[in-house]
Design a protein around this nucleic acid. Structure first.
Lengths: 220, 220
DNA sequence: AAATATTTTTAGTCTTAGCTAAAAATAAAA
DNA sequence: TTTTATTTTTAGCTAAGACTAAAAATATTT
């Protein structure tokens, strides 16, 4: 349907639109794509011809509904493949991006729907980012840092903020991974450390740890 | 490392070399690749510059060791992904080729070795073709039709010859799939039908069925 | 062996997607 | 409001990989 380059541009513009809340400048796209502004102008004009975005010279670009859907599909594929790599092939959360960048361009509706089912239709990727559904809808979610939860609250681990190898290995030892339910048993004011319940285990974590774990809040 | 186009040429030439037992003509490659001979000449010259094959004008091409290794790697990836699609995502044997054609170009040693382990290091793809190992070695194997086995012999199902949807569904019902062990209990001369033992079940199959199933012979 | 047919290569063109350098438009500063 | 700075676009080039048409080499007939 679309070339890899086209898909990459749409994805970049999609992300920038969210970040900037509006139309995206040529320079912004060039920076995101690590390419030159002149190349961006060419591509943006091509995508405008294909009605994937609307564009007025010197005014920047915004995706059309079609462009947004296409971008969401690519992001859906990227994030589903990341889940596959982590859950099934035991990659670490920080090793999967470059591979998913390639896999996201594989063309097959059937494949991606089967992959989704195989993975148990996950809502989040290993970095805690939400996975768009078949229609391109993204569950805009309250992704919070664990450190923002108060005593007594429950959350599901949906990702990490910084993902150093050391930190990920620490989480492995504590048996914390995507989907792990975390119950905040207590929170110390003076140093921000927390007492957690994870499965049957209870243990302390430092403020630093709590500030690097994303959770989705569980209604309770 | 190499472009998709380069990898596709190497793969095509690899297959043709085996089939023709020697150097491969420009026209043969063009036919296999569904492209024009002039395009082939260009690419073959480029691949010769990169020392992936040796080529003398008007004389055809043969892969170098490096070229053969690269081709085997692509074929390894293709066939491992086919196993994934059939074993894990429940695709049918005849639906997977086009998708594997895309997946075979994903670049990541780590990915493919993890995928291999995840799939249980299979020796054959869903069509019964052998999967090259990490070093590019292919288990040249005695792939025979089930109909060629005599009474008392044992084989492992490694693929199908014709793969109509009806036939594949018939095999599903009989619980025959890749890796299934088949014991020939009896064989009728007059119609070529066979009595088989598959797991705990025993049943008859027609000559037509036996002529469309590939097996690898088990030493016994 | 000469004529004809086939195969292969060369030469030149196209598209995609990048680049540089220069021109044009817009934005910011004096 | 000019001048200067920044951003964006245009124009023209490059490489990969396809194509067509024509030329050259090899094979096959007669």
């Amino acid at each position: 349907m679309f070339t890899h380059a086209e898909e990459n541009y749409l994805k970049a513009i999609f992300h920038l639109e969210q970040e900037l809340q509006g139309e995206v400048s040529t320079n912004a796209i060039a920076e995101q794509m690590e390419t030159k502004p002149s190349s961006v102008t060419d591509m943006v004009q091509k995508l405008a011809d294909k009605e994937l975005l609307s564009y007025k010279k010197y005014k920047g670009a915004i995706l059309t509904a079609a462009g947004r859907k296409t971008a969401a599909d690519v992001i859906r594929k990227h994030r589903l493949w990341e889940v596959f790599l982590v859950d099934k092939l035991n990659f670490h959360w920080d090793e999967v991006h470059a591979i998913a960048e390639q896999l996201e361009h594989i063309q097959s509706e059937e494949l991606i729907e089967r992959l989704d089912r195989f993975l148990g239709s996950p809502d989040f990727d290993p970095h805690g980012d939400p996975i768009p559904d078949q229609h391109g809808n993204i569950k805009r979610t309250e992704k919070k840092l664990l450190s923002e939860l108060d005593k007594g609250k429950r959350g599901v681990c949906v990702g990490v903020k910084e993902s150093s190898s050391d930190f990920l290995q620490y989480l492995d030892r504590k048996k914390i991974t995507i989907g792990t339910k975390i119950h905040v048993l207590g929170k110390e004011f003076f140093d921000g450390s927390m007492m957690l319940q994870v499965g049957k285990d209870q243990f302390f974590i430092s403020k630093k740890t709590a500030e690097n774990l994303f959770v989705q809040i569980q209604e309770s």
